[in-house]
Write a protein that binds this DNA or RNA. Structure first.
Length: 355
DNA sequence: ATGCATGAGAT
DNA sequence: TCTCATGCATA
């Protein structure tokens, strides 16, 4: 055994493991540049009123969107679709098509979900917002070849299990409810030891803050924490990305997600502090990797239009999405995903009605 | 710290 | 097709 390191091509996950090392970097909490625009929550019912309080500029944008025609321009009707994930041009490597990891799913496990829908109102106007678009065409093509899978990935497929869904407890904001209970979560655990199980936003908030503080004290970066989580060997828990750790600390995750992650991060923290006490560690290295996917960037004007439309109709139908895509000259999938992401954003904890 | 994306599950 | 949890790539 041993050696077997076939590295094959990419080892993308360096396991960073060891906690300790690295510098912190911190700044105040999120200072987004233009972020806080997500505040607009649609109101529950009332379709006619959505316009109230609506920014005129936005409306204008939406109307402009509706206005249609882009007659001019468009030399060719095609738009590539599909995401272009360019893989890194491999420098000579063949990216392991099959074999190596055919991607496994991720560790998505802490899912909880459910959520009935809430909003959906406002349809009244949608019909007209972009109605006249020139649908035709659009390419139909699609490519679907994205393939790419990033290369292997750790193999553990953890799929698993932790679904916590915790639940309940009062917090509900006007409109919508959410949380649903059940599940495992709560149960007896609570209290004493691990301390999880409480949907109390307060607790989460303070924990996140303490977590960040202690993490920095340990000299560990968010990325380190993420990869070190796999070392905890908690069933069903693999590593997490820097993004997720960052979002946890800044409370930009859904409430359920925060609740699910808390015990895990708490466990890591304790372990890391314990380890530090006994100076474990070994500096080690990690690797570097390869890169691939290219991120699509939506230009400001287009983004503005999307935001304006979103304010009026957060859940456009497939047809409308296609129309919007066409008008803005964006791929349909890009537009669809944008709306999905936008909806997710408005549900994030930080600005959410929970507090 | 965040924008755009993927995928598993729920609808 | 949406929702949710996450992640890669970037600003």
């Amino acid at each position: 055994l041993t050696s077997a390191i076939m590295m094959s091509m990419n080892s993308k996950q360096p396991f960073g493991m060891h906690p300790i090392l690295h510098e912190p970097k911190y700044a105040p909490l999120h200072s987004s540049s233009e972020a806080i625009r997500r505040a607009c929550l649609p109101t529950p019912s009332l379709q006619g009123n959505i316009f109230a309080g609506f920014d005129e500029q936005l409306l204008q944008r939406a109307e402009a969107l509706a206005a249609v025609d882009i007659v001019a321009q468009k030399s060719h009707p095609f738009k590539p679709d599909a995401t272009y994930h360019t893989m890194t041009t491999m420098t000579s490597m063949a990216c392991t098509p099959t074999s190596s990891s055919a991607h496994l799913h991720h560790p998505s496990v802490l899912t909880s979900h459910h959520h009935p829908g809430h909003h959906q109102s406002a349809q009244g106007l949608d019909g007209d917002l972009l109605d006249h678009l020139t649908p035709g065409i659009s390419l139909g093509g699609m490519s679907g070849s994205d393939v790419c899978s990033t290369a292997s990935h750790n193999a553990h497929a953890h799929m698993s299990a932790i679904n916590h869904m915790q639940h309940h407890h009062h917090h509900h904001h006007p409109q919508s409810m959410n949380m649903h209970a059940h599940g495992l979560g709560s149960h007896g655990s609570l209290g004493s030891s691990g301390g999880d199980a409480e949907p109390d936003p307060r607790e989460l908030e303070s924990f996140a803050e303490r977590f960040k503080q202690r993490r920095i004290k340990l000299g560990v970066t968010q990325a380190d924490v993420g990869s070190a989580l796999a070392n905890l060997k908690i069933p069903g828990v693999g590593c997490l990305s820097q993004s997720t750790i960052c979002r946890f600390e800044s409370l930009t995750l859904s409430h359920n997600n925060m609740v699910a992650l808390k015990p895990i991060l708490e466990a890591w923290l304790e372990e890391a502090e314990r380890a530090q006490r006994e100076k474990m560690s070994k500096p080690e290295i990690f690797s570097g990797g390869d890169k691939k996917r290219k991120r699509t960037s939506i230009a400001a004007p287009e983004k503005r239009s999307l935001e304006a439309y979103f304010a009026v109709q957060p859940r456009p139908s497939s047809e409308k999405i296609a129309a919007i895509a066409e008008k803005l000259d964006l791929k349909k999938n890009v537009v669809r995903v944008w709306f999905c992401n936008q909806r997710q954003k408005q549900k994030r904890m930080k600005f959410s009605a929970t507090h």
